[in-house]
Nucleic acid binder design. Sequence first.
DNA 1: TTGACATGTGGAACCGGTTCCTGAAACCCG
DNA 2: CGGGTTTCAGGAACCGGTTCCACATGTCAA
Lengths: 340, 340
Amino acid sequence: MRAIADVARLAGVAKATASRALSGRGYVSEETRQKVVDAARSIGYVASPNAASLVTGRTKSVGVIIPFINRWFFAEVLEGMEVALLEQGYDMTLYNLPAASPERDRIFEYFLARKRFDAVISVGVALSETEVDQLHRLGRPLVGIGGPIRGVHTIAIDDVEAARLATEHLLSLGHTDIVHVGGVLVDEMDFAVHSNRLRGFTSAMMSAGLATDGCFYASEFTLPGGHAVGMEVLGDPRRRPTGIFAACDEIAVGIIVAARELGISVPADLSVIGIDGHPYAEMFRLTTLEQHPREQGRLAVVSLLAELDNPTEHRADGELTELPPRLVMRASTSGPRPKA
Amino acid sequence: MRAIADVARLAGVAKATASRALSGRGYVSEETRQKVVDAARSIGYVASPNAASLVTGRTKSVGVIIPFINRWFFAEVLEGMEVALLEQGYDMTLYNLPAASPERDRIFEYFLARKRFDAVISVGVALSETEVDQLHRLGRPLVGIGGPIRGVHTIAIDDVEAARLATEHLLSLGHTDIVHVGGVLVDEMDFAVHSNRLRGFTSAMMSAGLATDGCFYASEFTLPGGHAVGMEVLGDPRRRPTGIFAACDEIAVGIIVAARELGISVPADLSVIGIDGHPYAEMFRLTTLEQHPREQGRLAVVSLLAELDNPTEHRADGELTELPPRLVMRASTSGPRPKA
DNA sequence: TTGACATGTGGAACCGGTTCCTGAAACCCG
DNA sequence: CGGGTTTCAGGAACCGGTTCCACATGTCAA
């Protein structure tokens, strides 16, 4: 009742002509095109994307696999991708990938295999070898965000560098007693992010001639996580560091809250630096390295669509686009209190 | 190369039989079914959802329109819907609806109109009359979360009741000087939520014989928003309330942080209660009314799929399923300090 | 024995577009 | 003016499934 055949009949042309007129492909006289467009509008014709996909093989939609939605970084990335995709007329189909589980397998074997989308973006997922293979077998363009995936063009900040900069910031202020609170090294998002940040920290400490034994604490990337670790690290006054480099702003803020509860003054008694550029950072006057996940999402989409439009020109497999983190100094860091 | 015709040929049966064997509809002998399944597996056959949708009219995917991704309530709802949808073999296509704008119109006119999904869930969106009409015209099942939409079955907590309970909790502790920090009354998510919570507050205050002039402050539903309002409300010691009912936990926590910065003791000098059951609530020992958005998402999906499976049995248009909020008492509320 | 009914299978139409191929008309150039 | 190239339009095949219908068999009750 609203098929292209009806439009064609109403406009007095053949289906083929109507299709060309509406899609803009092939030769159609201006006069005919106008007739078809008018006819389409008059019956409220909307093309069926299914029918079109069936023959063209293009669905105008991309699949996104992501381990969390309710985490600042991931939600920001999603919002960034959404805008960019919509702008180009693409739908976004979301798969909130759980940790290893039958449901996770099902996503790979059933949902992704159906090839409902033209391309896939993988955000911050640690993929098993099998899973990477499964993605490659789809034969669709693939882009990653947040950590290198074998054979996939990935967008991320330079985590090692960011961690090094953060640590060096504390070092340059004169701190020598520094602790790094970072991500658990074996969890869903451990694909370099956590270990890279730890690496940057260690390398900066080494360069400054400082040992790092016992200087690492693991935390969830959440405010309560940072708070709990903060209580633990700051609880014992005898072995309290003067500077803390948190792997993300939420951890950093959690630590600041813990410090306040313990009556420790920031930055007088304790300097804290994070990574992210979270909205909370400003409220807590947190010094941080900004990473703009929204922009990362946008870039991923741009790269993906470029490859879709021009498959030959696709990024070298495994290429890594590293964004420079930017240091934003606020009031959570200063030189350590001179020893009594 | 991987079409059902290939499977049929390999199994030595007709396309029709292969289709029946794989889909489980119609009569197929066990022996034949096994042959077809084996053939399918042997060539790694995956059915094309496009082709199937074309004829069945079902896409096995639902569209979700949502104003924010990066907000606790919304992200939780999304995660809840995701799990429930995946379980039933449905894809989730996400539309992050901006405030009134050409992009927003485009979502309604272009994306939603294409009918790529079997049903639509609208989460916390204030829809214009036109938009509601557009949704209804899709002729697809429709469910809302978070506030009534004309003619649409909606799932939400009873906001008036939740606000009343929160306020009564403060009243019952002996507070008489109470302020409500709620949502801005004209913004993207104002479709009853904000005004209902204000209404519940006012009604409880009235019942207690208390006036509410000047007792309402507006804030964004974020921690920095609550913090800013907290500084304002608590800044002047002469007219400081003893109890604050925040419309959400993030605001409440922001207020607690502000109080701490101002040296105001919670709950000794100030009681704070929120709504949500946010993970931060526990960390800040915040008394709150829990609303479990994840469960709301799940319920929306259940209701939607029930209607899809059995179109006749669909919920009365405009029916409202109201979930009871549950009071969780922690250490942010107590009786007011006796007047000197 | 006959007829009603359940079971099993194949052929062909169909969903709603796109595209290939063919042919006519218009245009261009030498 | 003839032949080659564009421009324009229609017919038909096709994408990859599902489903309707027809037909063959087998079963069971009357």
